[in-house]
């Protein structure tokens, strides 16, 4: 009975996210080898909404909450950003300002630096703890795959994508992921706290 309510029949036929995302997912990325399991091994160049070029490794040294979006996305992406803002809002006082938030664009064609700047302003993420960046198609693909984020470019130029938010530690190792819109940020916060202790 409950099962009937819980899921539509199509569930039986679907594919899923290979692992249960969560704090337990650390396969091949144990803390004993932070450098080799780090996403900061990706050497692509990204550009911020301020026009500044950087490599991901420049983000090392503090936890980063990151996701991928595109600015012409009306529905899903604003919710991702909203979720990330909520994480920032609920940070305990001792962590305020010590966590970086970063969103990377899927849309190498339409998301110009100006567009990013506009978007940051509209969503009030034009603050020092936030970062919005663009790059070329290869860099986007590599980052999405390193993060385990699925996306597909559609004919009309839009993207289908999932809603993964990842938290990487000071060394760039993915330590926590959540792939749905959570209304509780407790687990994310405690994951961040834990990595700050190390």
């Amino acid at each position: 009975m409950k099962k009937l309510i819980a899921g539509c029949f199509a569930i039986l036929f679907m594919y899923g996210v290979p692992q249960a995302w969560g704090h337990e997912h650390t396969s091949g990325m144990s803390m004993t080898e932070p450098q080799t399991g780090s996403i900061y091994n990706l050497k692509d160049t990204w550009t911020t909404s301020e026009g500044k070029n950087f490599q991901l490794t420049e983000l090392a040294g503090r936890p980063v909450v990151m996701s991928m979006i595109y600015t012409s996305c009306k529905e899903v992406c604003p919710r991702i950003v909203e979720d990330m803002k909520k994480i920032e809002r609920t940070l305990p006082p001792e962590l305020v300002g010590r966590v970086q938030f970063a969103v990377f664009s899927f849309d190498t064609q339409r998301d110009t630096i100006d567009k990013l700047k506009e978007y940051a302003k509209a969503h009030h993420i034009d603050t020092p703890t936030w970062l919005i960046a663009r790059s070329d198609a290869g860099a986007i693909r590599r980052l999405s795959i390193a993060l385990g984020m699925k996306y597909k470019k559609l004919r009309d130029g839009d993207f289908e994508h999932d809603t993964l938010i990842s938290v990487v530690d000071q060394y760039g190792v993915i330590s926590y992921r959540v792939n749905n819109f959570t209304h509780e940020t407790d687990e994310t916060i405690s994951a961040i706290k834990k990595m700050m202790k190390q």
């Binding site: 679907m14 594919y15 984020m149 699925k150 996306y151 597909k152 470019k153 994508h161 809603t163």
Partner: peptide
Amino acid sequence: NSFMASPDSRDS
């Protein structure tokens, strides 16, 4: 990774 069938895309 472009095959979209994640269970959570319902929410979006």
